[in-house]
Amino acid sequence: MSTTSATSATTTADGAPVPPPIRWFGTTWVDRGTAYWLRRALVPLGALAATAAGAFALRLGVSGVRISGAAPLTLLLTLALGLCSAMAGLRNWKILTEGKESLTGWAAEEKQLAGVWLVGFVGALAVYFARSLVEAPGEGLKRAAYDQERATWHRRRAARAEREARRAARRRA
């Protein structure tokens, strides 16, 4: 099996494209069978539970700072957590709707803003939950790439079959 690019599907021995798997969904998104719809129901619930658990953990952390008597620090910490969550959520939304290659500017910074992405995990989880209500997160991008690769493969296969038919007809004549 070979991979032509980061977003393209792998191919089988005859060159037919194979759909790339999506986290939690595998390749069930292609046929949209029973397993896909079951996962489509469970993934948002899991993402919502993870978002709630993360928000609760952050609330406990902020409460600990508040109890310590550092009231001005509590407000600053709350603002920082909100800003990090908003930035991580915006970045995650762009990744899920347009792909990681489309990130530019501050959203494209992996290592420099790793702390922001880590602290803003609640925003990223909330966006994952919201996106999973619409589709399997990232499905639209993968489906478009897979459909394009399948169309190209079918065109090439038809052209190859046509050339071979012409050659066979010339040999018979």
Rank of each mutant, 00 (worst) to 15 (best):
W37I: 05
A168H: 06
Y36P: 09
S8I: 01
K100P: 00
A136H: 01
K94Y: 08
E139A: 06
Y128N: 07
K94Q: 14
S102G: 08
R160I: 02
L42S: 11
G33V: 13
R167A: 12
A35D: 15
A52K: 02
G33T: 12
A144Y: 04
G64K: 09
R166T: 05
W117C: 02
A151C: 06
A49E: 05
W117N: 02
A145Q: 12
L90N: 04
T7F: 07
I95L: 06
E164C: 02
A9S: 11
V116D: 01
A41T: 15
E98M: 15
L58F: 08
A126M: 09
T27R: 11
G140D: 08
G64P: 02
R66S: 13
L48M: 12
R150W: 12
A53I: 07
I95D: 00
W24R: 09
W29F: 04
L96E: 14
Q112F: 13
A126L: 14
G46D: 04
G64D: 14
T152G: 05
A136G: 07
V127S: 00
V127L: 03
A57F: 13
G140R: 10
F25D: 00
S8M: 01
A41P: 00
A168G: 03
A108W: 03
A165G: 04
A161F: 02
V134A: 12
E162W: 10
S8L: 03
A47P: 00
M87C: 13
A88Q: 03
R23L: 14
K100L: 10
